[in-house]
Design a protein around this nucleic acid. Sequence first.
DNA 1: ACGGAGCTGTGCTGGATTGAACAGTCAGCG
DNA 2: CGCTGACTGTTCAATCCAGCACAGCTCCGT
Lengths: 218, 218
Amino acid sequence: MPPRKTGSFDAAAFLESAGLGKRIVTYASKDVIFSQGDPSDTVLYLRTGRVQISVVSRSGKEAIVATLGPGDFLGEGALAGHPVRLETARATMATTALAVPKRQMMHLLHSEHTFSDRFIAHMLTRNARLEADLVDQLFNSSEKRLARTLLLLARYGGGAQPQRVLPPMSQEALAEMVGTTRSRVNFFLNKFRKLGFIDYDGDGLTVNPSLLAVVVHD
Amino acid sequence: MPPRKTGSFDAAAFLESAGLGKRIVTYASKDVIFSQGDPSDTVLYLRTGRVQISVVSRSGKEAIVATLGPGDFLGEGALAGHPVRLETARATMATTALAVPKRQMMHLLHSEHTFSDRFIAHMLTRNARLEADLVDQLFNSSEKRLARTLLLLARYGGGAQPQRVLPPMSQEALAEMVGTTRSRVNFFLNKFRKLGFIDYDGDGLTVNPSLLAVVVHD
DNA sequence: ACGGAGCTGTGCTGGATTGAACAGTCAGCG
DNA sequence: CGCTGACTGTTCAATCCAGCACAGCTCCGT
């Protein structure tokens, strides 16, 4: 099966050794990598940092549809022939990536098996997550969705560690991930705190996974 | 760029010529292809027919998360290492497919460029659709979501034809696609009919795309 | 110290949605 | 014919939620 994100293949080193060193791009926290509507002709391969993918509706509402980290690709839509970006990508911390033009990307997918394995693994993971998010949205109330989002965020950096502190993230941003309003997020956040499911002081947020999981599973 | 679904490459013929003729599987309408929880070790490549992918929640609610047709793959989760199916796949009409074991699938992705191009194109398309569905769910009311679903269904078989009749599909099934209840679907369906956006008699449903589009776009 | 920007804590209201119930229609069938 | 099952048409009370408004708090730069 294709290697997972944590596999030993260093695609960045590979791409650089292939003479692509100049296409490294760097972004500071909050920089916009590309915006909805920009021309779409490169795929980015994330090396370090973190990136949020969001979509804005005609009515101006914004939704965060993904958070990506090292080893992920973004802007894959270019490969499908989308002439413009359908989403906006923003770095949420200092980030470096490799920009691979569409043509070259297609060539690499053919010629480098480990590279295409990684790309396919990325697509499969992203797919599974999108589907899970959609199902969550279809089935659950915003209270449960918030609980699930918190659990996923806590797991993100963690690995084995069950308890985890979150990167600073405003209630507004949480609302955009969960698909609800800030006042709702605030309400449930306080409710969870009162119940001892989370701990939550100023600039950080600690989750008690086993307790929060109860909220999610009915 | 990778060929689209409508490309000229006939992957079915290719797979058969590669000595895989015996792995053709056929299903009658309403047959279950695989169920949530089944062991997951093959990927299916759809040749003819149509398949619905659904997920059931702990509380017994069911959601239809995709409708696939010829040229699509299903059960890709096996490639990502999921030991069991996360979804249920049901044929909605007579359907034939090729069952490719995971190991062989990985081999083909390496050795056959046109084949891997098709697979990647499928994943990109599926991804874009999932993301669009998620955004739709996040932004829009169930009335707009129903309108959008009807438009997509009408476009499905159509191609150039703007007006289109739907395959028989119960209000219950529509509710599972839209993510709401049957009574809501019934309510809006009648509303659309009264307004002349759809025509709708017993065993078929005709959509007026330009009028319905007004509902979707505010 | 002052003012402002960006967050969080709260409460309220009206509209949107769910969930369940019940009657009516139609087709297939013994 | 009379029944059963699978749908659709309709209604209604209980809830959920979005949208707003407003106050308090903290970190900034001036």
